[in-house]
């Protein structure tokens, strides 16, 4: 009926529609960066690791019991004399992560239980953020603390008790890393424990159960899955942590489970291999990428499993 006005409307609509399409596509491109980063990580690690595995067989890397990349001194014997067995590094990493988790799990879990089940709202309101301060402290600060305060204390107490403790020990690094992980575990478990329905607790209290009975026999069993998920996430953190171990764990690649000895980890070796003078393409530098690939797969695997578990748990109590 009014063709001219109609046309105008449509035209204006078309112009802005194109502009909007461009904006939307632009946003889509931005969100693809996340994928691009992952691809970038995988490709760069895999490519350099591939170059490494052309010099050192995969089997020797994965199952070798000795790590001594430093022995390749002369340029004409590239990679030939170095020993690139990742197992001593893995042992060190596992040892330190284990110590860290052994410290953080009870402290974090008990803190979370106390805060969710016992603390008055007022107390909870200041303790929770204070605990989370621990998560905001840069790891280099923890490293300094470990090397300067904790390691000497452990060495002195150790030698006082007749043990031979090296100045850099897995115990010092693990202990401090454990402190770092406390808020991580406590706030994740806090979420999980709070998600257990109130009806569960009421049923238990209604039967005359005490709080501890309710917590240990009803709440925690119901939250187990979620707690396991959060512990896995924390473990993945521990494995990938770098600065604390660089500053407090040492460089000695030993196949040992003695927490009083100095051990080295995968992350420490990546840092040592890639800082300082380096020639690209030597087996030594490439080894860092192989370790990193290994580390990436390990943490990613733990993470995917943990997220799946936590997700399933959330659905369960949604």
């Amino acid at each position: 009926m009014f063709p001219s006005t109609n046309l105008q409307l449509r035209r204006a609509g078309r112009g802005s529609k194109l502009k909007e399409q461009i904006i939307i596509v632009g946003m889509l491109v931005c969100s693809l960066v996340a994928i691009l980063i992952t691809i970038g990580i995988v490709l760069s690690l895999a490519f350099e690791a591939f170059l490494f595995f052309r010099k050192v067989p995969v089997f020797d890397f994965l199952f070798g019991l000795e790590w001594s990349p430093q022995t390749a001194i002369r340029a004409d014997q590239v990679g030939a004399s170095g020993k690139f067995g990742v197992l001593p590094l893995l042992t060190g990493t596992v040892l330190i992560s284990f110590i860290a988790m052994a410290v953080a799990t009870p402290l974090g879990l008990y803190s979370a239980v106390y805060l969710t089940e016992y603390a008055k709202p007022k107390t909870r309101n200041w303790i929770k953020p204070t605990l989370e301060l621990l998560a905001g402290i840069p790891t280099v600060v923890y490293g300094f603390f470990a090397a300067l305060v904790v390691a000497p204390i452990i060495r002195n107490t150790g030698s006082g008790a007749g043990f031979d403790v090296s100045s850099e020990s897995a115990l010092a690094a693990g202990l401090v890393m454990g402190i770092m992980l406390i808020p991580f575990i406590s706030s994740l478990s806090d979420d999980v424990i709070s998600a257990v329905p109130k009806a569960m607790r009421e049923a238990s209290y209604g039967l005359g159960a005490t709080r501890v009975e309710t917590i240990t026999q009803v709440v925690l069993p119901a939250a187990t899955v979620g707690i396991v998920g959060s512990l896995l996430l924390a473990t993945s953190r521990a494995i990938g942590e770098t600065m604390i171990v660089v500053m407090a764990a040492g460089l000695a690649a030993k196949l040992t489970l003695n927490p009083l000895e100095a051990v080295t980890t995968m992350t420490v070796q990546i840092v040592t291999l890639l800082t300082g003078d380096q020639e690209f393409d030597s087996a030594k530098t490439l080894a860092a990428f192989a370790i990193a690939l290994f580390l990436f797969i390990l943490t990613m695997g733990l993470n995917v499993i943990a997220l799946k578990i936590v997700d399933k748990y959330k659905v369960h109590y949604a």
Partner: peptide
């Protein structure tokens, strides 16, 4: 995005 949040920081350095 969820997984990148948990990648060890040193890996970003290698990237």
């Amino acid at each position: 995005i969820n997984n990148l949040a948990a990648v060890p920081s040193i890996v970003f350095g290698l990237l």
